[in-house]
Amino acid sequence: MSTEGFSRWFDRKGWVGLVIGLPYVWLVVLFLLPFLIVLAMSVATNTPTAPPFSFGGEHPWINLGAYERIATDGLYVRAFLTSIFNAFVSAMLCLLIGYPMALGLTRVSKSWRNILLMLVILPFWTSFLLRVYAWMGLMGKNSWFNGLLTDAWNFLVPIDWAVKSIPMMNSNFAVVLVMVYTYLPFMILPLYASLERLDPNLDEAAMDLGSRPAQVFRDVTLPQSLPGIIAGGMLVFIPAAGELVIPTLVGNASQPMIGRLISDEFSQARDWPMAAAIAVALLVLMVVPTMIYSHYQAKAEGSK
């Protein structure tokens, strides 16, 4: 039914103005305006002043130099490729681990399910930084975990290949491992939500019509959970591509991801226009996955 009535009556006392206006103005001033400044900054010129930029009083007013460097300089191209690669691999691994876990969650008894779901969500509420830190402890050269893996490796490979410890820290491998660890709940929860909604009668109907369990999974379960898979994948990919903390702590400094590059350009190189341009480029990169996400999110919710 029509909802115009509700706001019409509110308007009499100016309540609509207040309820909409206050958060609106807040977001415009403290979110939109800073972003527009960054947008403008990306076409400014870097100068050795404080603050370190100027909109040229002379020609060229618009300096596309920063964008040019992003497209041509190997450092930036590599950073973008590394970010996309790491985020993509993380999303894939999250799917491979998260899908059977989510499916498993729908198959346990109700009381167990609530406990296990709570255990999936629990890490969410603990410090993100400390979850990354926990892996730093495990991956270090002298840790019991590294020792265990080293022993296993030395047992399996010829004696010449034996190593004293596995160099895990400060590598892309470490970045992906920790991103999978911290973002796995983002994959499990939407997948669980979409799998839990499936009508178990459909499975039974497919079996009744002669499908074996593997075929039932391929023909019935998997296609129906596709919106959940894509939503979960994007939910991992989007923050992973812009991640700063994980690559800074466990990544390889000579192979930076975009997030780290933005921060370095800004704080260390003090090249604000360059940092702004990379930020804008990163956002452009995220537009497509975000649109895919919201499309499938709406679909996943629509199928309730």
Binding site: V38, G242, L244, A276, A279, L283
Partner: peptide
């Protein structure tokens, strides 16, 4: 991304 929010 938090980096962008932070810098802006």
């Amino acid at each position: 991304p938090e980096v962008i929010t932070g810098i802006s």
